[in-house]
Design a protein around this nucleic acid. Sequence first.
DNA 1: CTGCGTGTTGCACA
DNA 2: GTGTGCAACACGCA
Length: 262
Amino acid sequence: MPELPEVESFRKYIADTSLHQKIKNVRTAAQGMLIETTDADLKRILKNNSFEDTFRHGKFLFVRLRSHGSLMLHFGMTGDLLYYSDNASPKSYVLLFEFDNGHRLSFSDPRRLGKISLVDDVQAFINKRGYGEDALQISWESFYTILKKKRTAIKVSLMDQKVVAGVGNEFSDEILFQTQVHPASITSRLPEKKLREIYESMKSILKEAVNHDADRKKLKHYFFLGNRKAGLRCPGCKGETEWQTIGGRSSYFCAACQKLYR
DNA sequence: CTGCGTGTTGCACA
DNA sequence: GTGTGCAACACGCA
């Protein structure tokens, strides 16, 4: 699920369902997913606590607790949230909250590539780990200052969470398709005008995805989102899309429409 | 059975 | 310091 738009919809989901309810019990099955905390501490801090507010930075979600800082959730590749207001029981979970009113919130993650932590100070956590500004917040000036110096592939720059936080593999491909830039282009070789287009495209695609709760069915007018294959007919030139791994990730693009800057 | 994947980190190496 | 490539984490799916 999770790039910035998915995490934003998880944020809203928690805000809409789970705030200001006493947490009666916490169940965990999150071995290997905890950062700087233990199973026992997690349970101890969260039990009888409550969620008061939500905050997202890039792909990280923070839920402020009534006491003892915030809960940090990262969804890896397969993390998901589900709120239960009936008696149905979660099929599987890595973290399960049981509220006073009998409702439950589960965090599931089959591949367990997600992360869970307790943080005292959200901004300090972000700074310490060196993450860049959130993709929906970053100014053009900051974006340009960082990108113009990067000598790595533009796709790698966009996906680098220390450059700008929130863009992942699928959205990077879509941004570069829309702006007609080959994903392997050397970032510093792109003219300022192109970087500006990429910046604007990043903002508008992410915003639209956020407005549609990251639902790929409502983003059909984009090309590569949820439609990642080689050999597709490019809507621009009618040629075939190609596949290449760039920065260790599968990248889809149209070599005819997307110019390679070297 | 093999290969792949909406993510991140750490490490070896140029 | 900058950048590249890969393995690892762990599981479901085609």
